[in-house]
């Protein structure tokens, strides 16, 4: 018993650091904001269509990014989980490697490719597919490309781990019972890998809601998402009250989505469980 207590001691420094430098500031500034201007800034954000549109853009971009990531990430994760290729480790390195490269550097790479005089436009002009350079940079398309590139490793890794845990024999069994590949996928693989899909989607959705570098660099000055807006209110408009409101609203919206995701998971699990008994 006394040993247990000795070990518990070890958590005190971290607990102390988090309380002083994380929890206390987060709570204190919220109270401070409310004391200074009341809910005026929150009301301003939630009633002004300019700000509401920024929230809407942020959510829509994040949903689109999550959808594309799922479509690209799932087949890749499946392949990685099932392949017996000797190149698997090399593929893992290629997938993990961008993960460790700064978002600034990766966005810069896309700027070189997608810019008005960028490599993509040079190529398309040279081939003759277009006559005027495409405007991709500083649009929502560029931001989505950048976010997909930024977050692909998260999605792939979340799903690969789960698929690796699904017995390959279940797929053989389904096909020997006459399921075609599509049916096997929908009846066996998809239900069993739902936990990975949900955790992957939750993760990338949250990360794209809060992404800052990618929208700033690929979206440019006139493209606004919630996090770039916080920065702008602080450094350009010097409106700290509004910046506070945007920060806490962003956190609240993310929390709301997480709750919805969790409820959806619970109901899906129930349905899958129900099917098993039927």
């Amino acid at each position: 018993m006394s040993k247990k207590r000795n070990f518990f001691f070890l958590s005190f420094p971290t607990t102390f650091a988090l309380l002083v430098l994380f929890v206390a500031p987060m709570v204190y500034i919220l109270i401070n904001t409310l004391e200074q201007d009341g809910i005026a800034n929150f009301v301003k954000f939630l009633t002004d269509s300019f700000y509401l549109n920024i929230l809407k853009t942020t959510v829509i971009i994040s949903l689109k990014t999550t959808g594309i990531l799922l479509l690209l990430g799932y087949p890749t994760a499946y392949f990685l989980a099932r392949t017996t290729s000797k190149l698997k480790n090399t593929m893992m390195i290629i997938i993990l490697f961008p993960f460790l490269v700064s978002a600034v550097v990766r966005s810069y790479g896309w700027m070189v490719i997608l810019g008005n005089k960028g490599l993509l436009n040079q190529f398309l002009l040279a081939v003759g597919l277009i006559e005027n350079p495409l405007k991709i940079m500083y649009t929502s398309h560029a931001v989505i490309v950048g976010l997909v590139h930024l977050l692909l490793p998260y999605m792939i890794l979340s799903i690969t781990g789960v698929i690796q845990g699904i017995d390959k024999n279940l797929e053989y069994a389904a096909s020997s019972l006459g399921c075609n590949p599509l049916k096997t996928f929908f009846k066996v693989l998809l239900p069993l890998s739902t936990p990975g899909i949900i955790s992957g989607c939750t993760l990338v959705f949250t990360l794209s809601m809060t992404a800052y570098v990618t929208p700033r660099l690929l979206g440019g000055a006139n493209f606004r998402m919630m996090s770039t807006m916080v920065f702008q209110e602080v450094n350009v408009n010097f409106n700290w009250g509004l910046a506070s409101a945007i920060s806490y609203i962003l956190m609240f919206v993310i929390l709301l989505f997480l709750v919805v995701f969790n409820l959806a998971t619970a109901s899906i699990n129930q349905r899958v469980g129900g099917q098993k008994h039927a």
Binding site: F22, P25, Y28, T210, S227, F231, V234, S244, S247, M251
Partner: peptide, 13 residues
């Protein structure tokens, strides 16, 4: 917690 929110809170503190 979004980095931007934490960054802003720290800035104010």
């Amino acid at each position: 917690v979004p980095s931007i929110a934490f960054a802003f809170v720290l800035l104010r503190v």
